[in-house]
Nucleic acid binder design. Structure first.
Lengths: 215, 215
DNA sequence: GTAGTCATGTAAGAGGTTACATGATTAG
DNA sequence: CTAATCATGTAACCTCTTACATGACTAC
C-alpha cells in the first residue's frame, strides 16, 4: 500500500479497486483488511489523511504517504524476506491421489492446469502492458519520477511478472505430467486405495459408531 | 495427519517428528498445532486414542484412524481444492526493487536462489529415496496395502515431489534472470528511486517534521 | 425512482507463529 | 548424574476470510 501511495494520494476505495485489479496478481487483500490497515498506518504516521467533501453531506479520506512512510518503504525494500514454510494444497493432495478416484484426480489436475493457464495468459498480457506503459498506476509513477529511473521501475514490475510466468509454466508442466501419469496407471489397471473396500477397518478392525461430521 | 495415520497408529510426538522431517516438504505444522488438532479430530471421531503406559508413571496416547476418519480422508481426496489468492513476498518485493539498493536486490535474489537450490537438492534426493522405497513412512504404508496398489501409492508421492522440483527450477531460473537484470541496470548506471534524495517530499511537497534518517 | 457505484467500516472465526511451560524417560 | 529425547500441552498474537452492515452519490 505504501508503494501504491507513492504513485499518487488516493482513498481507501481506490486502493480496494487496485487490489481487485492488476495489483491482485502481486498481492491480494480484501477491503476488510485494507481499511483497518490504513487507519493503523495513519496512527503510525506512515500516511496522512485529508478529509474532502463529496456531494452534499458525505466525505472521503484521501491518503498520502508521509516522509516517514517513504522511509519505511525503503527499509522494507532493503530488508531480507523469509520464504514461508510449505503449505500447498495441490501438492498435498497430489501426494495422496491414491485415496481418491482416477476421475477426481483428473478433475483436480485439469482444474489446476486451467487455473494456471488462465493466469499465464493474464501475466503475459500484463507484461505486454508494462512494456507498452499501458498500466495506469505504472504510468502515474513514471510521471512523477525522473526519466533516468524509468528503466529500473519498469524492469522491476516486468521482472515480478516474469516470476509468475515461470511459476505458471512450471505448474502447467506438472499438471500435464500428472494427467499422463493418471492415464498410464488407470489403463494399466492399477487399483487405488480409496476405491478399495478393505480400508475402512484396516486399522481398528472394528468400530462402526456414529456420524462423521464435517470440519 | 489422517493420511499419515493410515500407515500406522502413532503418538502425537511421532507425528511431530514426521512433520519436522520428510512431511515438512509437503505440509508444515508445528507441534502447537498438531496436539490440539489431534484432540479435535478425536472429539469428532476421526481418530481414536489408546493411552499406554511408558516407564513407571508416564503415559502416552497412541492415535489410530477410525473408519469415519478413512471416510473423511476419502472425501477430502475427492474434493476439489481452491488455489489461494496470490501472496508471495518474493514477487511483491521484486515488483518494488527500485525502492531498495542494487546490493539489497542482489542479496535477496541470491538468497532466493540458494534457498530453492537447496530445496531442489532435497527434493531430488527424496524422489530417489521414493524410487528405492527408502522412506520409512512409505515403506510402512506399502506393507499394509496389497501389492497391486503399490505403483499408485509410490507414483502419487513421486508426482508430488516432481511438482516441487518444477517449482524450484522455475524459482532458480527466475532468480538468475533477476541477478542478470540487476547487473545490467547497475552497469548501465540506472539510478534507483530508493537511493534518490528527492522522494521524501515528492508527495506532500512540504512537511519536514520528523528526523530524516539516513539509509 | 432505482440500480450501480462510491465509500467505509465491524466482527467472528479459522489457521498459523512464537513463546512459554512442564515433566518423565533413557542413554551414556 | 546429566543431557538428550520423549511427550504434551497452553496462550498471546497476527493475518486472512467471510459475512454482516450502512449510507451517500450519480446516471438513467
Amino acid at each position: 500500500m505504501l508503494a501504491i501511495l507513492t504513485a499518487e494520494p488516493m482513498t481507501g476505495y481506490d486502493l480496494v479497486r487496485y487490489f481487485d485489479g492488476s495489483v491482485a496478481f502481486v498481492w491480494s487483500a480484501p477491503h476488510s483488511q485494507i481499511y483497518p490497515e490504513l487507519r493503523r498506518m495513519e496512527a503510525e504516521g506512515l500516511i496522512e489523511a485529508t478529509e474532502v467533501p463529496r456531494g452534499q453531506k458525505a466525505t472521503k479520506r484521501i491518503y498520502a504517504i508521509t516522509p516517514e512512510g517513504v522511509d519505511e518503504l525503503r527499509r522494507w525494500a532493503n530488508d531480507a524476506y523469509r520464504i514461508p514454510p510449505e503449505r500447498d494444497t495441490s501438492r498435498l493432495k497430489a501426494a495422496y491421489i491414491e485415496w481418491g478416484s482416477y476421475d477426481a484426480a483428473r478433475r483436480q489436475l485439469r482444474a489446476h492446469r486451467n487455473h494456471w493457464n488462465e493466469l499465464l495468459n493474464q501475466y503475459n498480457d500484463l507484461v505486454d502492458a508494462i512494456d507498452s506503459r499501458d498500466v495506469p498506476l505504472l504510468r502515474r509513477r513514471l510521471e512523477i519520477r525522473p526519466e533516468a529511473e524509468h528503466d529500473a521501475i519498469v524492469a522491476a514490475k516486468r521482472f515480478a511478472y516474469r516470476g509468475f510466468i515461470h511459476r505458471a509454466e512450471a505448474e502447467i508442466r506438472w499438471a500435464d505430467e500428472g494427467l499422463e501419469l493418471v492415464d498410464k496407471l488407470e489403463s494399466a489397471g492399477v487399483p487405488l486405495t480409496g476405491q478399495a473396500d478393505d480400508v475402512r477397518d484396516s486399522q481398528t478392525g472394528s468400530r462402526r459408531r456414529g456420524r462423521a461430521r464435517k470440519s
